[in-house]
């Protein structure tokens, strides 16, 4: 355990008590790098692979029972159903159980004399955010590649564009960010990967903060999924359906909205996260979840 603690700090020396910001920042980066490397060799890799494979696997099992107009339609099929439904659960499962384990097994107490606790905990939450962003970015980017490039010659599924007697639906009018597709499919793919990755990072920070704030680890790990579901239902039943979380993030189940609509939920959740983080810092990380 002692060796692990020294390792987790990247072998770094403890910064001076005066707390030179530069040294603290360097330590933070070193902890982030060390932990990201470690997480890649853990359970997180398996979950990450599952997340990356999920959209494509889902589409492959569903293409035969769906009529698809074009490759954009194939991409929206990948972004519907299981990925939005499981989103908060997958974000949580990716890294946070590892962090919860550290908090539970008396890992923090011996860390305190060696490493500023704030830097240590911040680095763990940043690791969660970084991994969530990376994994969801890759998952969506691969889905876009499979749909826009892989199915270019109809290698995955045949396409049936709208015919006579059917309402045409130009791609630019189908989803909130789809006007980007008209400029370039690559631009749209990168934009969606970045957007979904950013939301995954945000919700992993929600999960990390829940672990600091809630003493019961099981409740803390369940909290992001419960919060996500409650918000989703509350927004819909309050009559603000255009702002629902899955519709804003994945944009597959609602009609096109003004481009700024998806950012409303992001800003709202971001504001709550910022307030919760400010409170944790004000308490000097002396919260229920930190032993």
């Amino acid at each position: 355990m002692a060796q692990q603690l020294i390792d987790c700090a990247g072998g770094a020396e403890r910064p001076a008590r005066t707390g030179a910001r530069h040294e603290s920042h360097e330590l933070f980066i070193r902890l982030l790098r060390t932990e990201s490397r470690r997480a890649r060799r853990s359970w997180s890799s398996l979950v990450g692979l599952g997340i990356v494979a999920l959209p494509t696997a889902q589409a492959l099992t569903q293409v035969s029972s769906n009529r698809l107009w074009d490759n954009f339609d194939l991409f929206t099929l990948m972004m519907s159903d299981w990925l939005p439904l499981l989103f908060p659960l997958l974000v949580t499962a990716l890294y946070l159980p590892r962090f919860a384990g550290e908090l539970s097994h008396g890992f923090i107490r011996p860390v305190r004399p060696r490493t500023p606790i704030g830097t240590f905990l911040d680095s763990r939450i940043a690791t969660a955010a970084l991994l969530a962003f990376g994994v969801f970015f890759v998952a969506v980017a691969i889905a876009a590649l499979v749909a826009f490039v892989g199915n270019a010659g109809h290698a995955i599924t045949p396409l049936t564009p709208p015919g006579a007697g059917e309402t045409p639906h130009p791609v630019s009018g189908r989803t909130t960010f789809s006007p980007l597709y008209s400029i370039s499919p690559a631009l749209y793919g990168v934009a969606m990967a970045t957007w979904i990755g950013a939301n995954a990072a945000l919700w992993s920070v929600v999960g990390g903060l829940c672990l600091l704030l809630v003493g019961n680890r099981f409740l803390a790990l369940a909290a992001p999924t419960v919060l996500f579901m409650v918000l989703q239902v509350a927004i819909a039943y309050a009559g603000f359906d255009a702002f629902i979380l899955t519709g804003s993030i994945f944009q597959s189940n609602i009609v096109q909205q003004p481009a700024w609509y998806p950012f409303v939920q992001f800003a709202g959740v971001g504001l709550v996260v910022a307030l919760a983080y400010a409170w944790v810092r004000r308490r000097r990380y002396e919260t229920s979840g930190v032993e």
């Binding site: 519907s80 159903d81 939005p84 989703q232 239902v233 819909a236 629902i244 899955t246 189940n253």
Partner: peptide
């Protein structure tokens, strides 16, 4: 049919 993630 609705999508899996439509709560209403």
């Amino acid at each position: 049919s609705n999508d899996l993630d439509v709560s209403k």
